[in-house]
Amino acid sequence: MNARNIILILIGLAAAGFVALVLSGKIMWFSTEPPVEINPNMDLQFKAIPQSGNTFFSDRKSLREPVEGTVPRGAEPYTLGVGDIDIAETANVDPNLPDTEFVLARGQNRFNTFCSPCHYYDGNSEKSQMTKRRWENIPSLMADQAKGYSNARIFHIISAGQGLMPSYADKMNATDRWAVVRYLRHMQGVTGTASAAPTTQAQ
């Protein structure tokens, strides 16, 4: 076997190895161009896909807004505004979710997802990433002020927002938000009143 053959064999082996590595996903190269499709089959059909442009409508949105004055089926919009705290105390009736691990777990899961960036996992906002990154004065949820709020009020803050805190009604349904209230109470170690409204207090 002469040197040339050996070189040829080596090149062949290298090529085969390369193909094998690419196929097994060990080698990956990045491309900013969309992948080429020789035969597009029925990959792209003329239909409305969520969050995509659509040439059928004049505003080019696939996602249609509900007709004015209507509410989509199954939607449970939170109608109170940020300032309606007084109404909120009576309007938000605590459904009294059962005190099970499942409810607390759900509350924990949603709290960690939606609240922890600003209020941290334990509700102590000073440790949170946002406080570290130049957003000062996020109140601690373990402080007496938050402990003193009624459940209805906390539900209102989550649903409508307060000050710079945004509303989370569009990201969590009502049951989930009540589960978050439950979990927050669990962490605070207080039972909390259902509502601060005079009518319920009298009962």
Binding site: L23, P35, E37
Partner: peptide, 20 residues
């Protein structure tokens, strides 16, 4: 053959797509 068979297979072509 290599380009057509492997280069255009979805498992090879789509992986690594990183648009701006």
């Amino acid at each position: 053959f290599l380009i057509v068979f492997f280069g255009f297979r979805n498992d090879v072509a789509d992986v690594g797509y990183r648009p701006e």
